[in-house]
Computed example of a mutant assay.
Amino acid sequence: MAVYVVGDFLRETRLRKGYTQEEVSYGICTPASLSRIENGMQKPGRLILEKLFERLGTENNLFNSFVSKEEMELYSAIQSLIRDITDEDVTKLEEHISVVEKLAANASELEHQCLYFAKGELARQKEKDYSKAMELYMKAIHITLPNFDGKKPLRNNLLTFDEIMIINSIAILYSNDERTIMNAIHLDMWLKEYLENKIVDGKMKTAKYPMILYNLSCWFDDEKCYKEVLNIADQGVDFCIQYGNLAFFPLLILNKGVALAELNQISEAEKYLHQAITILSAVKREDLVETVIDWCRLSYKIDFNNRQL
Results as ranks from 00 to 15, higher is better:
K198V: 03
T13L: 05
N39M: 03
Y300W: 12
K92V: 00
T58H: 09
M182N: 11
I302P: 02
L288Y: 11
T86L: 05
L246P: 01
N176K: 15
V237S: 09
D162N: 09
F117T: 01
E290T: 03
A171H: 08
L10V: 04
Q113F: 02
R83K: 04
I277A: 13
F220S: 05
Y209S: 02
F148V: 07
V6H: 04
S98W: 00
M211H: 02
L280W: 05
N305Y: 14
I277E: 11
P44W: 12
A104V: 06
A104Q: 09
F304D: 02
S169H: 10
L263K: 01
T291G: 07
F249W: 06
Y300F: 14
I141Q: 01
V99I: 13
E23M: 15
K139Q: 11
A233W: 13
I48D: 05
E228Y: 15
E22D: 01
D149K: 05
A140Q: 00
D294W: 03
S108N: 15
R16F: 00
I241L: 06
G257F: 11
C225D: 07
L15S: 01
M211F: 04
M134F: 15
C296A: 13
D149S: 06
Y116E: 04
L216V: 11
L56Q: 03
R155K: 14
A171I: 14
E94G: 01
D129C: 08
N176T: 14
P31Q: 04
T160H: 14
T20H: 03
I141L: 01
N183G: 07
K126M: 06
A107F: 08
L213V: 07
K128R: 09
T30R: 10
R14A: 04
Y137V: 13
L110S: 14
Y130T: 09
H142K: 09
T180H: 08
Q113H: 05
